[in-house]
């Protein structure tokens, strides 16, 4: 029943033609590459269009009145000043519109909380000012630092990289089509892991472990930033996620394991 309602609501939203309208532009929320980001995008657009509709009605009446009822055009003030009927109408109609908005919002929100049945678990820890990714089942763990050279930040004359401030040394790597559960916490102050293309934003709070999930259908490189002020270099701890086919992910894991073994062997040797 729940699933059915959900499908129906989103089929309806998609029919309204708001899907992908302004995707990938720099003036709107990205349509993204996950079901979650699509759902959020559709909610965002339907709310936006409803607001536009109400705006058109209210501003039309306002601008018509400004044009029509000016003293310089000989207008004389009318005498009415109350009408309980219209008050009730313009209380009820917005209320009903809001109920209509609340239904899909409730459904999507439930989906955000559904972190069950994940294929992979990654623990993400915020540090001032970098991210640490730990693949709990694979035993892989590494830090991800800003890769933009400092000189490009300090010197306005220097040519900047294409992904200025959105590039890291070690990106998080996840397999395509797999449900990845992320666990978020922090080592110091509150950070926030935000990746717009996935429709995911979740605070990393010291003493807490927050959950969210990602399931990407298109391989590629996706970028985001810290979303909560965390000190002087809040703007300099980007998030880069590389989504790869499953075989490639297995190879990446194997390479990391090998690397780790090599490192620990090396330690033993010395």
């Amino acid at each position: 029943m729940f699933q059915w309602t959900q499908k129906w609501v989103f089929a309806l939203l998609s029919c309204l033609g708001m899907q992908n309208a302004l995707a990938e532009s720099t003036v709107n929320m990205p349509y993204g590459v996950t079901r979650m980001s699509h759902d959020i995008y559709n909610l965002h657009m339907i709310t936006f269009y409803i607001c536009c509709g109400i705006g058109v009605v209210v501003f039309s009446v306002l601008f018509y009145s400004i044009y029509k009822y000016r003293r310089s055009r000989g207008a004389k003030a009318a005498n009415f000043h109350e009408h309980p009927g219209v008050e009730i109408i313009w209380t009820l109609i917005p209320f009903l519109i809001l109920v209509g908005l609340a239904i899909p919002a409730t459904i999507v929100l439930k989906d955000i909380h559904n972190t069950n049945e994940s294929d992979l678990i990654i623990k993400i820890t915020g540090y001032q000012w970098k991210w640490k990714y730990e693949y709990l089942d694979q035993g892989i763990s590494f830090f991800s630092n800003l890769a933009t050279p400092q000189i490009q930040i300090d010197d306005p004359q220097k040519t900047k990289n294409e992904w200025f401030l959105l590039e890291v040394d070690n990106p998080m790597v996840i397999p395509v089509h797999k449900k990845v559960k992320i666990l978020l916490t922090s080592n110091d102050v509150i950070h926030d892991w935000w990746l717009p293309a996935f429709g995911v934003k979740q605070d990393a709070i010291p003493g807490y472990i927050n959950e969210n999930w990602i399931q990407v259908d298109t391989p590629g490189i996706y970028r985001g930033q810290c979303g909560e002020l965390c000190g002087a270099y809040h703007g300099f701890m980007p998030i880069v996620v590389q989504v790869v086919p499953e075989e490639e992910f297995e190879q990446w894991v194997a390479a990391h394991m090998l690397n780790k073994t090599a490192v620990s062997n090396g330690r033993k040797a010395t």
């Binding site: 009145s65 009822y69 004389k76 009318a78």
Partner: peptide
Amino acid sequence: VTTIFKGEL
């Protein structure tokens, strides 16, 4: 807005 409507602006 209704106050402005039919006023003498």
